[in-house]
């Protein structure tokens, strides 16, 4: 299958008071008609990669091609083939939704009649028909983001770049946007998506690359990444911290992996799920420990990230302005998990 996007050894350093090596030899490729997820925490280089691929920035070295065209040498051609929806809804506050779409259509040099029709269709597709003739000042955050994506689609791009399209959106808007992206890919569009949400990458992307400090630290399909991690995770919930501590010690005996005690929850990676479950339950029973929850689950991409980098994806999310407050509880837990995972990884606990 031909590649829609090919990136080879891209390097980019931002000079200034503090030199920042945003990308340090990044390579990946994206097959036509698929969704590629570029995953990583803030500052990992995701946005820089998107800006290079959309011709906004020039790399210091390396090369990148979109649909076979070099993004530096054929920038004009590349621009006419791509769409970009950025991290911040880049739409004009003072114009109406329709005027924004028409402006982008005109700047793509589409036929005037075509532009009007497409603006109308897109406003309808994105549930903005009623708001289409109101200035954007009156739009909610979710509406702006939808309009931003609509603006990226006016020229019917063959390759679409979405830089953290759902950051800061409420769950309903996020789901709506996911459906739009799936429908676009169904129509043959290639999508490169950056995200810090593993759930999002898992749901949308057929292939992934994980970026950390400007390096691709892993790539493959979500399933491959989970397979690489090993197997299943056994998660046991206890009613108190003392039981959790004891359970940690007990579960350490059932397999080669060390358990991670995390408040009243104990997690251990196991190679054979059912067998480990039986061994685990028997061992707990012998000790007279009664769990409140006992779950076998597939490793999440959170687990993947943790094992690859030694820190969770959400480590830096706390400093982010709109770090998704509804998820804070989960984030907090993962953060502690990350801190405790480090000694386990180096074997100091066992």
């Amino acid at each position: 299958m031909p590649y829609a996007i090919e990136v080879e050894h891209i390097k980019k350093t931002f000079k200034g008071k503090r030199e920042v090596r945003a990308l340090d030899g990044v390579s990946f490729s994206v097959e036509e008609g698929t969704v590629f997820g570029l995953l990583g925490p803030n500052g990992s280089g995701k946005t820089t990669a998107v800006r290079i691929l959309t011709t906004i920035l020039q790399p210091d070295s390396g090369s990148a091609r979109v649909l076979g065209h070099d993004v530096c040498k054929k920038a004009g051609l590349v621009r006419s083939l791509i769409g970009l929806a950025g991290q911040y809804a880049a739409v004009d506050e003072n114009l109406t939704g329709r005027e924004n779409l028409v402006m982008v259509g005109n700047l793509n040099h589409l036929n005037k009649a075509v532009v009007g029709g497409r603006a109308k269709d897109l406003l309808e597709q994105f549930n903005l028909a009623d708001a289409g003739d109101r200035p954007l000042k009156t739009y909610s955050g979710g509406m702006r983001r939808r309009l931003d994506l609509a603006a990226a689609l006016v020229a019917r791009p063959t390759v679409l770049f979405l830089d953290e399209p759902t950051t800061g959106l409420d769950p309903q808007s996020r789901n709506d946007l996911w459906e739009v992206i799936e429908s676009l890919v169904g129509g043959g569009t290639t999508v490169l998506l950056t995200t810090q949400y593993l759930e999002e990458a898992d749901r949308l992307a057929s292939t992934l690359a994980v970026l950390d400090h400007g390096h691709v630290i892993a790539d493959g399909t979500p399933a491959e990444m989970k397979a690489d991690l090993g197997a299943t995770v056994l998660e046991v919930g206890l009613s108190n911290l003392e039981d959790a501590r004891r359970t940690g010690a007990v579960l350490d005996t059932i397999g080669p992996h060390s358990p991670m005690v995390n408040g009243t929850v104990v997690e251990v990676t196991v190679d054979n799920g059912p067998q480990a479950a039986m061994l685990g339950l028997r061992a707990l029973d012998r000790e007279g420990i009664v769990p409140t929850a006992f779950t076998l689950r597939e490793p999440s991409l959170d687990d993947v990230f943790l094992s690859l980098t030694g820190h969770s994806t959400v480590e830096e999310a706390h400093t982010q302005e709109d770090g998704g407050s509804p998820r804070r509880g989960r984030r907090g837990r993962r953060l502690r998990a990350a801190e405790e995972a480090l000694p386990i990884a180096t074997g100091e606990l066992s």
């Binding site: 004009g76 051609l77 621009r79 006419s80 083939l81 793509n108 040099h109 589409l110 597709q125 994105f126 549930n127 689609l153 020229a155 019917r156 791009p157 063959t158 709506d176 459906e179 739009v180 429908s183 676009l184 169904g186 129509g187 043959g188 569009t189």
Partner: peptide
């Protein structure tokens, strides 16, 4: 939002020469 979005058959005008 669930309607299939048309395949990208024609993009913007080709670059000016």
């Amino acid at each position: 939002m669930t309607t299939a979005i048309a395949a990208p058959t024609l993009s913007g005008a080709p670059p000016a020469t």
